[in-house]
């Protein structure tokens, strides 16, 4: 807990109430995301989602075409050549980290500069 670094003399910040430090919150969020993608995903329902189910039921599922990336080693969240839990965990963890880097990077580039201290 490094909450002290945020306990500045800035009254507005104290009033806002910080129960956990920014770093603690962000680490917890990352761990939760990785656990959901890498572990919990193993127990996800294999049933078609709402759109796919409706497409089948009303008769337009057949119009779906394979994506150009359907040959990807991580297609359908399964790793080619890997069996079991790890097969889904690898794309889950890699995808989570890649999204974090791309979205976080974009947010970092477009953010307001110098308005706030970390």
């Amino acid at each position: 807990m490094s909450a002290t670094e945020h306990r500045t003399t800035d009254g507005a910040e104290r009033v806002a109430g910080r129960r956990v430090s920014t770093r603690t919150l962000y680490v917890v969020l990352l761990v939760v995301a990785l656990a959901v993608a890498g572990v919990v995903s193993y127990w996800a329902s294999g049933h078609p989602d709402g759109l796919e189910f409706v497409a089948e039921e009303t008769g337009f599922l057949g119009s779906a075409e394979d994506s150009a990336t359907s040959g990807s080693p991580f297609a359908d969240y399964q790793t080619t050549g890997v069996d079991g839990w790890l097969s889904g965990a690898i794309p889950g963890v890699l995808g989570t980290l890649l999204v974090l880097l791309v979205a976080g990077g974009a947010a970092w580039v477009v953010r307001r500069r110098g308005a706030d201290r970390g």
Binding site: Y26, L29, L30, A33, T96, L97, V99, L100, L101, V102, A103, G104, G105, A106, A107, W108
Partner: peptide
């Protein structure tokens, strides 16, 4: 950074 974590 929170934006990146929310996306993840």
């Amino acid at each position: 950074p929170l934006a990146g974590l929310v996306a993840a």
